[in-house]
Simulated scan of single mutants.
Amino acid sequence: MKFKSVIAVLALIASSAANASLISNGSFEAPGIQSGWTYLSDNSNGWQGDNIEVWRSGFNGVTSYEGNQHGELNAHPHDGTSFSIYQTFATTANSTYAYSLAYRARSNNDESFRLEIFTGDLNNRDHVVNFEFIDHTTREWSTFASSFIGSGFNTYFMLTSVNPTAATVGNFIDAVVVNDVSAPTSIALLGIALAGLISVRRRA
């Protein structure tokens, strides 16, 4: 392998590792469906909740923001309360985490949902982020991006329907991402890439 090619490959590996999302299945691409929609009740593919509804891009005229599928809140809750989906991931104390998502209203422009990022547990929440989205429309996708500082504890990323409450329509979600963008992580990845580069040069 040529020296320049090795540099390109190692840079790509470092970049991919640095940008790996802590959210699994953030674009709701799993399980893959061929048309229409489905909903899952087995808490599989990263997300947990009463049910996770997945739409194929183009169904009912709604094109996914990213990939071939997107999710929907308000998908057949069992207990008659607001519907939530969530994931958990570990954080490092004082590291910076960037997060982003795409969202769109399904039925009317008055729909809203809440984003919570917190430590603790579902019954005792120490919030890092607690924000209600009220600005989305049925016409197009909106996006949001921000950041938070890690606590070193297990962290929840939760989305909950607000309006409509416990209904079966509303609040499309796509492209959910959480990345560790702290400087120590980037430096460590660069060190790994450089170590690999030195090893390749020695073998050349």
Results as ranks from 00 to 15, higher is better:
V62F: 12
T143V: 09
Y86I: 00
E132G: 00
A14L: 07
A204Y: 15
E116F: 09
D174F: 05
G152D: 07
S5C: 07
N68G: 14
P77Y: 09
R125Q: 15
A18M: 07
T137Q: 11
V176C: 09
E116G: 06
A75W: 05
N45S: 11
Y39D: 03
L194E: 08
I7N: 06
G80W: 07
Y39L: 09
E140G: 10
D126M: 09
L40C: 01
N60Q: 14
T119I: 13
N51D: 08
Q69A: 07
I187P: 00
E116L: 11
Q87D: 07
Q48H: 11
V162M: 06
N68W: 04
A18W: 08
I192E: 01
S186M: 06
V162Q: 02
A18N: 10
S151D: 02
R56I: 06
V128F: 10
Y99W: 14
I134K: 15
L190G: 15
E53A: 15
N171T: 00
A98S: 14
Y86H: 11
V162W: 00
A195R: 07
L101W: 15
A167H: 03
L194T: 15
S112M: 08
G80V: 09
T185S: 08
D110E: 05
R139F: 15
T119L: 11
M158W: 03
D121C: 09
D126G: 09
T138K: 11
N51R: 15
D50F: 13
G150V: 12
E29H: 02
G152L: 01
A30L: 15
D126L: 10
G152Y: 08
S161Y: 04
E140R: 14
H127D: 07
A188G: 05
A105R: 05
W47T: 08
T92Y: 03
G196E: 04
R125M: 07
A166E: 09
Y103F: 15
S182K: 10
D126N: 15
A183P: 02
D110A: 10
A193H: 06
N163G: 00
S199Q: 03
D42N: 12
I149M: 12
L73H: 11
K2T: 15
A98M: 11
S151E: 05
S147R: 08
V177H: 04
